[in-house]
Each structure stands twice: as C-alpha cells, then as structure tokens.
Design a protein around this nucleic acid. Structure first.
Length: 724
DNA sequence: GACCTGCTGCGGTTTG
C-alpha cells in the first residue's frame, strides 16, 4: 500500500481492505495528497467507472472523521444532475460510511418527506442533492441556510462537463455564490468530470475569480484500441424489389449485434421508435427471444429501468436503441459496440458515446457509423448531391481520431435564468435592494456580463403592473408582487429549463410514456411507441391521458426538437474533406462512392474556386464555411435585406423574386459597415422559460449573445466577397 | 435539422 493510504482515516482504510483492493488507483492517490495536503479547489477528470467518486470522497470523509466540525450542519455537499445518479452514489457512499457514524442523505423529488425532515432536524454527514432541490431549499428555507451549511467543508460537483455553459450550470454557480455569501466564507469546490477537450475552461467555470488556483488531476492512459466502420446507404429507391435503407440497416444491426450488449444511437426519438419496431419484428420473424429495446426520455421510467438493468446485469444479451439518455450518468457496464445512425451533432457527444465501449482490458472500442443519403434524380438539388450528412460523419470521425472536441461556448447573458435568480434571492431573503441583487448575482455571481443598465431594465420589466412579479416598498426594498409570489410558490418554479406540454400514454392501466401535444391524435388512429404498435381508444383532454390497445399497424409519432448547433471547426473540416482526395480505410464501398460523387459535384458546380455559384436565375448557393451560429447570423442579415434563405451545414441557398435584389452588393454593403438589423417582428425570440416576462429589447439583447454572432458578420461577408 | 435534465406542501385515506 502506498503512502496515500496511510493518510486516510482508520475506518476508510478498513473499508478499502474489505473491498480487497490491492492498491489505490493513481488518480485516487493523487487526490488523497491534493485534498488532505492542501486547501485548493480541485477537478478530478476520468472516464465513467474510473474511480472518481472514491478519489474525491475517501480523503474528504477522512478529513471529516479526523477533525470533526465544531458546529452542526452538513459536512459535505454533493450536487448531481440526475436523480438516478444521486440514488446510485448514495448507495456507494452509505457502504463506505457504514462504520463511520456519518449520515448519508440523498435529496431529490423522489425522496420521501420523512427522510428530508429528519435531515433538516439534525443535519450532518453527506448531503446529495440536485440543483433544483437545492434551489427549493434556498426559496423555502432561506433563513436556515447558515445553520445547514455553516460547517460544510467541500462541495462536490458531479458531471461538471455537462453543466459548464448550460442554463442549469449558471443556476448552480449562482447557488454556490449565494451559499458562500450566506455563510460568510468560501467553500472548497471539487469538480468531477469526464476527460473532454480543454480542461482549462472547466477550471474557470469551477472558480471564476481564481481559475489558476484550481488543481487538475487527469487519469492517464486507458485508451482502448478503436475499430471503426462507416457504411453508406441510399434511401428513396422507388424500386419495389429493393428493401428500404432503414430495413437494410436494421438487418445489418440484427445480424451483427445479436448475442451481445450494444448501444445504437439513432439520433432522434422518432428514429429510435422506427428502428426498435424493425428489430422487434426481425426477432419475431425468426422466432428468437427479444433482445432489442428502445430507450429515450419519453418512455416510462419502468421501461427505461428494465432496459438499464438488462444491460448492467449481463445475464441476457441486450441492445438498446437510444437517444442521448444513455450517453452519460449511471453506469450500465461495458458494451461490445456503439452504433451511430446518421451524423452526430458534436464530437464531444461522439466521445462520450464511444466511452461506453472497450472499457475492459484488451477489448477494443467499436464504432459502427451508418450514413443514409438520398437517391439522386435529375431534379435533385446541390445539397443532396454534396452528401452533407456523410461528409459530416467523416469530418467528425477525423476530429475524434485527432482527439479534438468542442469547447464550451463563450458565456451568453442568460437573462431568463437571471429573472429566475432575482425572484429566488428575493424569496430567500424576504426582500432585497436593487444594489444588493446586482452585487450578489452580477458582481459576485455568474451574471458578470450583465451591466447595470440591462439589469435595471430587467427589474423594470418584472415590476411592470401587467407582469406583477416584483414591487418596491417605500424604503426601496424589492418584494415579490402577487404574480411573483404565485410563480415562486409553485413547485414548477425550481427548474430553470423549459419543458413542453405532454399527454400520458396508458395501456391496460400501465403507463407507456409521454407524447408531446404537437401530434394530431384521435380515437382509431394507430402509432408506434415503446417499440410496439398501438391503436388509440380514448383521449382525455382534461387530464392529458391517451388510452391505447395493442394493434398491428401504426406510424411513429413526432417528438419535436430544436435544430442542432454545429461548431466552426467541424464545418471547416467538412470543406477539407470535400476538397481532399482518397478515402479513409474505414469506409465501405457505398460510402466511398458517395464521397467520390460529392467531390465531383463540388468542383463541377464551381465551389472549388468560388464561394458563390449561380444555381438558376436569382438563386445562389453560398458557401459560408463556418458553423451554425455564424451561418445563421448571415441568414438573418440576408432575410432582413429581402432575400429568401435556406440554411444547411456550411451553406446558404439564397434566392429572390425580385431582379432588383443584388446579393454581391448587399454583402459589400455589410463589409463597408452598413448597420444590419438581424431581427424583425416575425422572429421568435422566446426560447427559454422566463423569456415571456422580458421586453422585446431585452429578448433581442439576450438572443444576440446566445443565438447569433453579430461581431463575426463583417469578416464572414468579406471572406465570401473575396472568393466570389 | 436534436437530445437531455427537474419539482413542495398539504390534505386525504389507510393501516397498525
């Protein structure tokens, strides 16, 4: 045993021996020295099942045992993004703490009130909580925060990489600041993260005012051999003899994955349903036991847990057809192969997905990428001919092999989350002055980019009589208004992210899952859901319930969603692929032919020498060569100038009905610095939960920092004009 | 042209 072991408390040493561990892993030894030997904040980066949890908790618990706190309250606070993860971690920590006398309290929406009340009465040990439940504690028990957390030594933030720049991440950082202000001292922060890309940015997110003081421990090695295949398919063949691309892919999955555990990422919930239905029928046709199951967020928890259990216990071969539900979080064990149907949206998520395979020593990680392209006809447009899906898959695999991935985006203003935190701080303290709110949230907290005039405008919007969220008392204190109290009191307030309205789907008294109300539904209609087929019996619009019975026919429902956001570097690489020669060895024959075809067309229509080519009268293809945000910014600018614009990966199709519109002239005017108005009254700017309470002006300000890149517009136009 | 995440307090009923 190493020296690190000697630094741990006796009961922890005893626990380690009882586990039969021969030694601590390297990252665990390093963490013991960093935590017991210092006071600095720390990030521990390793892959799932890399021993991060123990690396952080063994030394932190040792400190609590060796130097017990003088005051009451929770000793350690763990914040996790998923309920399932918190329950999982609580069990592991209970096991470690069994003989220490230290309490372990999981706290989220599914934990009973009695467990919570007991912890509130005599707080101590380790509290594991979601950001939303912590928010609820601030709002409902604001005055008790110092009693509960006054003696807390460290806050452990799990899955740090998933919350870096999200609304939830901003909320969490705001809560951390508010907690430190409430107890009057900083609390050590320990972040647990997957190893992804540039960890420097993660340090800045963990402790914004002192990133250099954040220690970083990274698990080395563990890179399994990678086996890759990219298969091309052509869809849309009207020939009755040829099976559809979907069928051929399902057949290939059936033949190659049967008998082992696998994950198939299908790209959307609808696509998950389609492939799960196909694979179920293939098993039935061959009279084989079922081993392919769908898994996505709209399916009932019962069903999802069933699939997760089957994957984890390894008793029967299981393949989950899934969305990003199985990308992170709870441990489902090692899988033989990861399949990806269609191009993914980010290299970072491709990394995470691939990390599920090849975890056992000597086992390779296997990625099977399936690309579906449409059958060309003389009428096909240039976008189909350029095979952008396939080219994006190649670009992303390239970047994956180079170990690159997307960094978190520069911080947006997050005005929706600011509205939430303003109301929450007022509720926590029973009232606050505008100056105090600004200090807590914008100077000390995460809303540093919000300047005083914008902040005052937000307060004014919330105080409008028709909003009624806040009001000012005679001594200048801001209090919750009638509407504000009602909003904050309701339990739906705690989450900062938006969720759509849904129906519950029930068959024979059992819930199958939920369906967004955007689907047109009526009794007698048939649908595919949870990998099986159903007919609608009855719809209860008041309780939002749909009763269904098993049936033979059906179509997959619509689940909705937002367009993805592709990074600049990915699009740049796509152009390099289009302008390159040769094909990687991992591509099959069809995929190579498709790539060859795309390259031929790319130079045929003149894109190799020019950024703008004429498609027909008053209709242009314009290569932006940059990612979604900048491409969208140019699209908005051109729409504001009267053009009709379609957006694609790195391209815009620009057309006009009027001969008077001059594309070249318009771009040159932007280069010359003519002001551009990106939004008109038609543009929807309400895309986050508390946006409805803001003015049009504030919504535009927010959208400018989150959805578009105004500053890049001139340079982009300049580049296009140069290559005209 | 996409995915995911979360939720309190109280009143009523049942059971020991």
């Amino acid at each position: 045993m190493t020296q690190a072991f000697e630094r741990l408390a006796r009961p922890i040493q005893k626990w380690i021996r009882s586990q039969g561990w021969r030694e601590l892993r390297q990252i665990q030894s390093q963490a013991v020295h960093a935590i017991i030997g210092g006071k600095a904040d720390l990030i521990i980066a390793a892959n799932t099942a890399g021993g991060k949890t123990e690396a952080a908790f063994l030394p932190l618990i040792s400190q609590v045992l060796d130097e017990p706190a003088q005051a009451g309250g929770f000793d350690l606070l763990y914040i996790g993004p998923l309920k399932a993860l918190i329950s999982d971690q609580a069990h592991r920590l209970e096991d470690i703490c069994r003989e220490t006398g230290l309490a372990v309290t999981p706290w989220h929406g599914d934990v009973s009130a009695s467990v919570k009340n007991r912890a509130l009465k005599s707080p101590g040990g380790i509290l594991l909580i979601t950001p939303e439940s912590l928010e609820a504690l601030f709002i409902r028990r604001g005055l008790e925060i110092p009693r509960l957390f006054g003696a807390t030594r460290a806050i452990i933030i799990d899955e740090l990489h998933t919350v870096l720049d999200s609304e939830r991440g901003v909320q969490m950082r705001s809560l951390l600041t508010r907690m430190e202000l409430a107890i009057g001292r900083p609390i050590r922060r320990v972040g647990l993260s997957a190893t992804l890309g540039d960890m420097e940015l993660a340090r800045a997110y963990l402790r914004p005012d002192n990133p250099d003081g954040v220690g970083l421990l990274k698990a080395e090695g563990g890179d399994a051999e990678l086996r890759l295949q990219l298969r091309g398919y052509i869809a849309g063949d009207k020939d009755e003899e040829t099976p559809s691309a979907t069928h051929r892919i399902a057949q290939h999955l059936f033949t190659n994955l049967r008998g082992s555990d696998n994950l198939v990422f299908a790209g959307s919930r609808q696509s998950v349903e389609i492939y799960a239905d196909h694979l179920r029928r293939l098993c039935e046709d061959e009279r084989l036991p079922q081993e392919f199951y769908p898994h996505h967020a709209s399916l009932s928890r019962d069903h999802r847990e069933f699939v997760e259990r089957r994957l984890k216990d390894g008793s029967k071969p299981t393949t989950a057809i899934c969305t990003s539900t199985l990308e992170l979080g709870i441990d489902i064990g090692d899988v033989t192969c990861v399949a990806q149907i269609g191009a993914p949206f980010s290299v970072a998520s491709l990394w995470q997905r691939l990390g599920r395979s090849g975890r056992r020593a000597g086992q390779p990680a296997v990625l099977r990428q399936y690309s579906v392209e449409t059958l060309l006809t003389p009428e096909s447009n240039y976008v189909d001919r350029l095979r952008l899906g396939l080219v994006r898959s190649v670009a992303m695999i390239d970047l994956l092999l180079e170990k690159w991935c997307e960094p978190p985006r520069p911080q947006a203003l997050h005005l929706s989350t600011l509205v939430h935190q303003i109301l929450s701080v007022i509720a926590e303290r029973g009232g606050a002055t505008a100056g105090r709110l600004y200090r807590i949230l914008c100077q000390e907290g995460p809303f540093k980019k919000v300047e005083v005039p914008v902040f005052m405008e937000v307060l004014k919007a919330l105080g409008q009589p028709e909003a009624g969220l806040i009001e000012q008392s005679d001594d200048g204190m801001l209090l919750l208004g009638q509407a504000g109290e009602k909003l904050v009191e309701h339990y739906t307030f705690y989450a900062v992210f938006q969720t759509p309205e849904e129906y519950r789907l029930i068959s024979g008294g059992k819930e199958l899952g939920t369906l967004p109300i955007v689907n047109v539904m009526a009794p007698g209609m048939m649908l595919i859901f949870s990998g099986r087929r159903w007919a609608i019996q009855e719809i209860d619009d008041r309780d939002k319930v749909i009763m269904v019975n098993p049936s033979k026919g059906g179509t997959p429902p619509i689940f909705g969603g937002d367009p993805g956001d592709i990074h600049d570097r990915v699009i740049e690489r796509m152009f390099e692929v289009l302008e390159g020669t040769g094909a990687p060895a991992y591509m099959d024959r069809t995929a190579r032919d498709l790539l060859e075809e795309a390259r031929r067309h790319y130079s045929q229509i003149g894109l190799a020498t020019s950024s703008v080519v004429v498609l027909s009268k008053n209709r242009y293809a314009l290569a932006t060569r940059v990612g979604t945000t900048k491409t969208m910014t140019l699209a908005l600018a051109l729409r504001a100038s009267g053009f009709m614009v379609e957006t694609h990966d790195g391209f815009l199709t620009v057309s006009s009905k009027d001969d008077a519109f001059d594309l070249n002239g318009t771009l040159k005017r932007i280069v010359a610095g003519e002001p551009v108005n990106l939004f008109d009254v038609q543009t929807n700017l309400v895309f986050e939960k508390f946006h409805p309470y803001l003015t049009r002006g504030l919504l535009e300000t927010d959208a400018l920092t989150a959805k578009v890149d105004h500053a890049a517009l001139r340079g982009l136009c300049e580049q296009i004009v140069e290559r005209w």
